[in-house]
Write a protein that binds this DNA or RNA. Structure first.
Lengths: 191, 191, 191, 191
DNA sequence: AATGAATGAGATTTCATTCAT
DNA sequence: CATGAATGAAATCTCATTCAT
């Protein structure tokens, strides 16, 4: 949580943190390197964040919010279930393909021991509209009857793993493959 | 006749490492704690593993092998596609539910910066039989036509995420839910 | 404006290193003790030198340069061969008597396994002018005809051994003895 | 000081110790390596020597005795001063050329902090006959009048330094050069 | 506020020595 | 006596954090 304002610095630190974690793995994330990469002094880092834990938590929350925004986009919520689901699924899938480092960041750190329980709970609320949307889908017999948390987990897990694989192997997904991926998702959740 | 190298110690170290990572997150994995928990002196750790990195890589490879063994089980390979797939899926799903710490361990460390590229490649080969099984399924028009790596990713990602959620929230999956989870998996990959 | 790197610290570290090696023998040189004696934190040592090896190499090179400076002193190079030689010999002899710890340091560490080959070569060049002076002396038939490296070795070895003995036994060299020592040196190299 | 008898082991340990110090410098001398190189277990080392310090001191004393033997050889003591001196000088010079690792060992360790004062004093007595010989030479006006310790230091220092140089540079001393070296030694000490 | 040198607690690793076999 | 696995005190080095400028 920044104490002061230079938004350029905040952005630079945020960017550097995400990039370093993606590059060196998060066990190698050093404050000195974050400082260097973001072009500020180590001391300055502590003007903006009181500790490494704070920095990581902050980056985590900000990123998680952005991730949620990629799925939950008000302009879609008025369409049919299928159309809306498709929009959400593609929204998230493409976001992950474009920002794998952010996707990885939140995935990695959630079990790292760095993120506070409070922040995990807090960021989960960002996905509440998605829950509502799926519950609505169940009421209308579109969606398999089961705890929506499990359904979300199924969808998210599948997307993440596919994207990680694509990124790791340096693949280029064709439109056809992406459509098949979507069909897998759709088939899995619908009755 | 000197003391002889002790497999019990290796096992104790392995167990301690997995448990500590699961408990404290692996940014908090300390050699001193591994030593303490496994009941050996710190120096002894270095009799068996030349460095922390080596220890983690070793635990990673051993665990990944065990994980692969949970899926690929020769007694199933003679059944129908559906039966075999079901056996594999349940085999893996239940393994993950019973050993979430091992599942987490391999998932976490793969992006930690600790695991060498060579070990990542090596452990991937353990899953080759699964690839073959899915390719066979595609030939017989059971399975959607797409790079099997993507299909595997979809299946694995979904399972992992569900299990992580179940563990995190302390849920107890009912038989019915587990069946629904399986149906999701089956529906997603079949044509 | 941040704190600025402090030459006083470098000097203090240098001094502490030499003194500790002289006092405890260098098998007992510990970074913690160097830090303590030079009045800095252990971490600070690593701000200035990336490792113990680096520290020792640095102290070695600096000292060797100073040692060379004790012999090769431009104000003498214009005199007769005898006068110049005498000036150099006394210059070095007295330097060693006054700074036996520095003489010992370079002598000890050269075979310690700590000094890199590059630094050994580098520091040898500091003595080039002495080579030239002796070669000149040979051309004018003052000096015995032989590889000047051997002549230098003879002179230096004799001085070092004498000084070591003097220091070890706590002797006080009388003027007469010093003159005899010089005569030994002079007689040994002249035709 | 061996507790027991297997002389082969004692010899192997002695040889390994000297060789390792010559190769890796003595700051890198490790008991485990001595054990390995001499073909015994680490535990066995401690059957023969109660500590590393003991081992090194023992090797030191044994070697120093051998070194003294190379100089002081009863068959020469009856000749003229010149002949005897020449025999001694060549005896020592050639010994050093043939066994530089032993010469280095004693030279290195004397200031390492490992050798006890008692052993330094003890080994000095081995050279007593040389002292007597030089004193006799002074009485007969062959040798410059000065503390014989200084004369010995001068001679020994010169020899050591020359040999070190020869070994370091991989030179091959010609007979003529060796004679010049002797002449330097002779000229330096005679009146 | 910004800097980066300085700090020192704490981590990893080493290695002389011990001890069970 | 011989072995080498086991030990743990102590060494080196790291790095999040502080602080003088």
């Amino acid at each position: 949580m920044p104490k002061v304002k230079d938004q350029n610095k905040v952005n630079a630190i945020y960017k550097a943190t995400i990039e370093l974690v993606t590059k060196t793995g998060f066990s190698g994330l050093k404050m000195a390197e974050v400082a260097k990469k973001s072009g500020v002094a180590t001391g300055t880092l502590y003007v903006y964040y009181i500790s490494k834990e704070q920095l990581i938590n902050d980056v985590f929350v900000v990123t998680k919010k952005e991730v949620a925004g990629a799925i939950i986009n008000s302009k879609y919520v008025k369409g049919s279930f299928n159309k809306t689901f498709k929009a959400m699924w593609y929204g998230y899938f493409k976001y992950c393909l474009l920002n794998p480092e952010k996707m990885l960041f939140v995935e990695q750190f959630i079990y790292s021991g760095y993120i506070t329980e409070a922040n995990i709970i807090k960021t989960n609320t960002y996905f509440e509209p998605l829950n509502q949307f799926l519950i609505e889908g169940q009421k209308n017999d579109y969606v398999k009857k089961m705890d929506v948390a499990l359904i979300k987990a199924h969808l998210q897990g599948a997307i993440h793993e596919i994207v990680k694989m694509v990124v790791r192997e340096g693949l280029k997904l064709k439109k056809k493959d992406m459509n098949t991926c979507f069909t897998m998702a759709w088939d899995s959740i619908t009755e």
